[in-house]
């Protein structure tokens, strides 16, 4: 699924970011590929707000469509 389908309050893992510039910036920010983030809020067709430890990043719809996520699962054991 892509980020536009994220539900507020849920925790996700970022799988892939299909935009070179955004991927780099997301990595710097600590929200790059392989990291887990919370969907904090989402407007209909609008920006999604990602959060982690109080940090918040707003991602526009166009960019959100280029970000692949899956639901986060707690590590076993």
């Amino acid at each position: 699924m892509n980020l536009l389908a994220a539900a507020p309050g849920k925790r996700y893992v970022i799988v892939r970011i299909r935009d070179e510039a955004v991927r780099r910036q997301a990595e710097c920010l600590g929200m790059g590929e392989g990291e887990d983030v919370y969907c904090v809020a989402r407007q209909r067709n609008g920006p999604v707000i990602l959060g982690r430890n109080g940090q918040m990043v707003a991602v526009g719809a166009e960019t959100a469509r280029k970000i692949q996520i899956t639901l986060w699962r707690p590590p076993r054991g």
């Binding site: 109080g54 990043v57 707003a58 991602v59 526009g60 166009e62 960019t63």
Partner: peptide, 11 residues
């Protein structure tokens, strides 16, 4: 092409 929003929100 236009660039999408990717903006950190300050407190």
């Amino acid at each position: 092409e236009p660039e999408g929003l990717f903006l950190e929100l300050p407190r």
